[in-house]
Simulated scan of single mutants.
Amino acid sequence: MKILVLSSLYPNDVARRHGIFIEHRVAHLRGPGDEVRVVAPVPWFPSANPAFGRYADFARAPHAAERRGVPVTYPRYPVVPKVGMTAAPWLMAAALYPHIKGLRRDFDFDAIDSYYLYPDGVAAGLLARWSDRPFLMSALGTDVSLIPQHRPERRMILNAVERAAAVTTVCGALRDELLALGAAADKVSVVEHGVDLELFSPPADRAALRAEMGLAGPAVLSVGHLIDRKGHDLAIRAVAELPGVTLMIAGDGPREGALRALVEELGVGERVRFLGHVDQQQLPGLYGAADIAVNCADREGIANVLLESLACGTPLVATPVWGSPEVVRVPEAGVLSADRSAGAIRDAIAALLAALPDRAATRAYGERYDWRETGRQHRALLAAAVG
């Protein structure tokens, strides 16, 4: 097959924290003889001046690259902030059509494989219609849990789902919600994310690693962009009430100043470490050194941190939202907090520290999340669409 992947979340050299999980998924769906190309649209912005903050990143993004052996192009498309949400799929599709038409001269693709239902999936549906090709859509999280709360977007998503050859969700909770919105049950399949089991693996000498990092007592790790919905503030408040426990926060973002101020207010500066942005290659060492990884998010499909931590043998404390209960469902995986509050997260951390599972058992459980199986399931849906 010749597969054209469409995703505005695909990573590039500037947007480092974009959907690395999509890149992994795409890398593993290729079968023998298959050819894959990625179109990763980037919002148009006129200036790369750093004064414009994250908007300048759009201008600095490359126009083409090769990642993991897959050619990627980054065409620009117009975005009208806030007021243009309803028009976003049409603006994306109209901007991409000439680019995709040009690609077809030497890459006459068999199907469009899109990630994130809105605007990407809806735009993929338009492009597929104009190209007379089948298309798939994959739901990742807020494209089901948040965006369909707006009626125009919900209507467009459901229309695209109806016309798609197949739709995947990364967890059962997202599938259930999509069905509740009105999607047909025979159209939607759960295809869970995987994890790089070679990169994310237990450390060879955990004691030496912890000594190198200066960790003498219990350590908790919170990974993610420093934004409100990730709940790092809840992790800080929880650990503040657990004497002797160290919290490591891996990530950067706009809430760093507020989080640092909270640490000072609670008087736990000696027990909370801000590590800044951590490249994926360095994350396994942090997971391996930590006793627990905590995910305090308010909404997730299946968060990368859950699977990465398990693969490193580190059990989890997670809030009981969306796909997290589908991962943290056995003692080897860790525990769910009773709710999304600092007190409930504190209690869950304390309970898990008092009865930590065997790390080899945690790793063995994590091995079920294998990208190769994810790719096999996803490719089967593509093959059925093309067939």
Rank of each mutant, 00 (worst) to 15 (best):
Q282I: 10
R376K: 11
A185F: 08
Y10E: 01
A290S: 14
R37V: 11
T142M: 08
R155F: 12
A293K: 05
A354G: 14
V26S: 05
Q282C: 12
G172S: 05
D176F: 14
L181K: 08
S341C: 06
C171P: 00
V39Q: 03
A208N: 01
H193R: 08
V327P: 01
R175C: 07
L382H: 03
I292Y: 11
D132W: 14
L382V: 06
V239P: 01
R105K: 15
I227D: 00
L91A: 02
Y118R: 08
V80S: 07
T169S: 09
D252L: 03
I112C: 03
A166P: 02
L316T: 06
G33Y: 14
A384H: 09
V272T: 02
L286D: 01
I345F: 03
V144R: 02
A385I: 15
D279S: 15
G244S: 13
F21M: 09
A258T: 15
M156Q: 12
V26K: 01
G269T: 15
E153N: 09
F135D: 05
H28W: 12
P134C: 06
G323H: 08
N49Y: 09
N304C: 14
L158W: 09
S341R: 07
P81H: 09
D291W: 13
G251V: 02
V239E: 00
A211E: 06
M213P: 03
L242H: 14
A59H: 09
T169G: 06
P202E: 00
F109P: 00
R206A: 00
D132S: 14
